[in-house]
Design a protein around this nucleic acid. Sequence first.
DNA 1: GCCAATGTAAAACGATCGTTTTACATGTCA
DNA 2: TGACATGTAAAACGATCGTTTTACATTGGC
Lengths: 174, 174
Amino acid sequence: MDFKKAILEAVEPLFDRNGFMASGMDRLTDAAGVSSRTLYKHFGSKTGLMAAVLDERDRRFRSRLDVQTVDAFFAALEDWIRIEGARGCLFLRALGETGGDTPEIVAAVQTQKAFLRERIGDIVRVQLDEPREDLVDQLLVLFEGATAGAAYRGPEVASAAREAADILVSNARK
Amino acid sequence: MDFKKAILEAVEPLFDRNGFMASGMDRLTDAAGVSSRTLYKHFGSKTGLMAAVLDERDRRFRSRLDVQTVDAFFAALEDWIRIEGARGCLFLRALGETGGDTPEIVAAVQTQKAFLRERIGDIVRVQLDEPREDLVDQLLVLFEGATAGAAYRGPEVASAAREAADILVSNARK
DNA sequence: GCCAATGTAAAACGATCGTTTTACATGTCA
DNA sequence: TGACATGTAAAACGATCGTTTTACATTGGC
């Protein structure tokens, strides 16, 4: 169980750093310190490995962004970007590299993004005790923008997103 | 001159739809209706072709987003996404697929992103006749967020970005 | 003490990768 | 007319792709 997790931890940085398609199985097995036979027994295929990496990342993401206010959410995002690296959303990158044609990848992305929207919705509901779907949409855009923008402007973009979010929230409170 | 442009127009949808690494030269030459010999004479390598595609896209992008107000900017972005497809920023995707290790790609991305920030800066300066770098950062985040978010929520995210932008602008005006 | 499971190491599979080369057909300009 | 540039078609290059297979070592449970 944590044998599989160890493989995923070793492999994820390679995908993140070099891209999914550009990471060959040879280098993946080398990094994991595991024979290709074992890797295929546990994950079935390269696609299966990619999906497992995404699922594990989602798990980590959820625990790191388990906060109660909008401001804390974007503060946590900045920490996440600073720690996990600023190379763009790994889920959307996987989706783009596979053209949206791989069901396992599509499913992993949908799961993550559905959770993300729910979490933001929960926070907004607590903070404004109204639904305010429009605000949720706007905060989601800020989240994606910080994640993407960090790829070329660094983790500091997250604080721009945070400031914008604070303004939007206090404006919505009216 | 427009011979090269015709090739780029034929090839860009393949990169966009299937990813850069997943698009083999055989399928690219087929789509362009050109022999591989000719393609290599004009672009040198697959990397050169990718960079040329990005440069041409940047050219198209600049003319399409040549507007004077923040609201018009995000309206134009929504049109762009609706027409060019909602698969995430092609520049950042290229950067991610190549791991930031390909100078020609890095240069193309930097050029695009530098222009993007300047354009937003120009618009903000006209609309508020103050510099307001903080607002520029925030609008840049909204732009990237709409582009990325459209990949899984469709072009409508652009209008959420647009609403958020309007709020941030009128708030900045004080 | 042995069977079954689980691991490694390494070779091999056919397919496809990006790129170059060979051979040939055009049209243009001196 | 004849050389040159520019195009196509197609084969070939070695490398690498994702995956499977062969052969062997180690372990834990009945």
